[in-house]
Nucleic acid binder design. Sequence first.
DNA 1: GCGACGATGGGCT
DNA 2: GCCCATCGTCGCA
Length: 199
Amino acid sequence: MSETNQKLMRSFFARDTVEVARDLLGKRLVHVDQGQRLAGIILETEAYRGEEDQGCHCRAGRTERTAVMYGPPGLAYVYFVYGMHWLLNLVTEEEGYPGAVLLRALSPEKGLDLIAERRKKQPPRHWMDGPAKLTQALGVDGGQNGLDSCQPGSDLFVEPGYQVEPGQIQSSPRIGLDNVPEPWKSIPWRFTVDPAHLT
DNA sequence: GCGACGATGGGCT
DNA sequence: GCCCATCGTCGCA
């Protein structure tokens, strides 16, 4: 297995959202929290792109909440759902066009003691296997909304991590869009990789 | 392992 | 008002 320690540049995110969602698999998400480095390998993502995408928050256009998605690629878009959960996205596309990749699952890699404390009562297998679980584990909440992951010194960023062969990527419909009209409800913009296939 | 269900609050149609 | 890009717990196998 090969590892690197460089931060992904803005040009990585300034592309088609679906490509970025696929390419984020195997990458390492890092949050430096209270001086401690917490990290996990990205195993599951979803793409949300454009005002025509009826599954995307920006279907209603630009509002105070969705403004971050129209901002520069590489920003963190963190929002609140179900009255108690924070979900983390990374903004994509050129500035002015709304898009973001939702991070849905990670494999815990660094800062395991603090992660275990925050996810207590759960076995390691369930520490970061959901979009709100991973924000709990990493200590990400609304305070990180709009933060620039590409800025030097940022406490939230992505590293190259591991290689994923294109043939090992699975795609499927996005989760939780039961009341969204077709084709958006079924478009296969959810991407997963089995951690056994990371090199 | 799986299905059902309550919690809880911001954003918007 | 109603709708959620969800989780944890419970019951049952």
